[in-house]
């Protein structure tokens, strides 16, 4: 299973997914979110959803010097925070810029594909689903 962006054109920019991802850990605000919503160069042009695509062979894990990123079943990685030194190489390796930074912990924030955000998306933009190899718009 992994988190999929079903249709970014349906996104209204409410950012409720970002709050959900942070609330999962018991906080308000958006400081722990692994999914980001931003405009495509202005609200008039619509929104883009930036989140991990759950690569089968993730470049982020390859560059981690501490083996802090463990391959996740179903794609993507899981962060072992005790091994992570906060070097940030993983963030640079992600071509869709889906690795975010936790300024409070000085560690990367990477989606673990739990689907908590999708439960709150009011407009059917996100879903937790079986992997489809043809998904093309996950990082749209």
């Amino acid at each position: 299973m992994r988190l999929s962006v079903i249709d970014a054109e349906r996104c209204t920019g409410c950012q409720i997914c970002m709050f959900a991802c942070t609330r999962r850990l018991g906080y308000a605000g958006m400081g722990k979110t692994a999914i980001h919503i931003k405009s495509v160069g202005g609200m008039e042009r619509g929104l883009s959803v930036v989140v991990c695509r759950a690569c089968q062979d993730p470049p982020c894990a390859k560059v981690c010097p501490e083996d802090a990123l463990v391959l996740r079943k179903g794609g993507g990685v899981l962060l072992n925070p005790s091994k992570c030194t906060g070097c940030g190489l993983c963030r640079e390796a992600c071509i869709v810029s889906a690795i975010f930074w936790d300024k409070e912990a000085e560690k990367p924030i990477i989606c673990m594909h739990c689907g908590y955000c999708a439960k709150y998306c009011p407009h059917g933009v996100l879903a937790l689903e079986e992997r489809r190899e043809e998904v093309s718009n996950a990082a749209k």
Binding site: I16, T22, R23, L25, G26, Y27, A28, G29, M30, G31, K32, T33, K103, E104, Y120, P122
Partner: peptide, 25 residues
């Protein structure tokens, strides 16, 4: 900016959030 905000009680917060969100949608 971006940050986390503390709440008085994490469990109660999530429950109340769901109540308000359900009402809103």
């Amino acid at each position: 900016g971006n940050r986390t905000l503390e709440v008085a009680d994490k469990v109660a917060y999530r429950a109340l959030y769901d109540e308000i969100n359900t009402a809103a949608v």
